[in-house]
């Protein structure tokens, strides 16, 4: 089109030229640091906190990872179903349970589990469907993530319900609750009325700890 000699109205040229000029990076001297105006940021950075929702006509489930590492469907949003979804490369994401900090991973047999350490087996390709739902394929196995509803349709004839493959990342309704602090110096020891030091003033602090070393 550009090579053709058909005359183009001068006005549109001007507009285009102006737009091209506008997209040039601003000169460094007067640049404000990274305004939050880029369309790339409309997904709130690289990290999303979502519940993975799936449903058929009878059931609706949220994918959750239990503290034991079991992956299952929960009928409601729970602290264990809140996932941190982070892109690791184009089209590929990894998911981490916010409560347990376990990664969603797939073992060679295609079985899903929660793993405490991140590996290649925890990468999933995110494929967006027309209806807005996503499919997640294991990057290494190319097997999709799926959940089996606990029960079939009401009054069913005992056939196991078909697995659900399509997921919708939903915004969390569960308040992000404070994570349990697992430090041994937390919590007061119980009152020991038989002791000359009932409130345990002595021996509670045996070492000099620095806050900058706890992290």
């Amino acid at each position: 089109m550009w090579g053709s000699s058909t005359p183009v109205p001068a006005e549109s040229w001007l507009l285009l030229a102006a737009l091209m000029w506008g997209t040039r990076p601003p000169a460094p001297s007067q640049a404000a640091p990274l305004q939050n105006s880029s369309p790339l940021y409309q997904f709130d950075g690289q990290v999303r906190l979502r519940h993975l929702y799936t449903a058929n006509t009878h059931t609706q489930l949220y994918l959750e990872i239990t503290p034991q590492g079991e992956v299952r469907g929960a009928p409601d949003q729970t602290p264990y179903s809140l996932m941190e979804i982070k892109a690791v490369k184009p089209g590929v994401i990894r998911m981490q349970g916010m409560k347990t900090l376990l990664f969603l991973c797939m073992d060679p047999s295609g079985h899903l589990h929660g793993a405490s350490s991140y590996s290649e087996a925890c990468n999933f390709q995110e494929k967006v469907q027309r209806d807005g739902y996503n499919l997640y394929f294991s990057e290494t196995r190319n097997i999709p993530v799926s959940l089996r509803p606990a029960e079939g349709p009401p009054g069913g004839r005992g056939h196991p319900a078909p697995r659900l493959f399509h997921f919708l990342p939903m915004v969390s309704r569960v308040p992000v609750e404070p994570v349990l602090l697992e430090y041994d110096f937390y919590g007061d020891p119980p009152l020991d009325v038989e002791s000359s030091d009932p409130l345990s003033m002595m021996g509670r602090l045996s070492r000099v700890l620095s806050p900058s070393y706890i992290f």
């Binding site: 602090l181 430090y183 110096f185 937390y186 409130l199 345990s200 003033m201 002595m202 021996g203 509670r204 602090l205 045996s206 070492r207 000099v208 806050p211 706890i214």
Partner: peptide, 22 residues
């Protein structure tokens, strides 16, 4: 090292302190 200085600590129960006992 912690023994060489012969020091032990006491938590003043009347003093405002943080959850990590600072």
């Amino acid at each position: 090292y912690e023994f060489d200085r012969d020091v032990q600590f006491l938590q003043d129960i009347t003093c405002l302190s943080s959850p990590s006992r600072l």
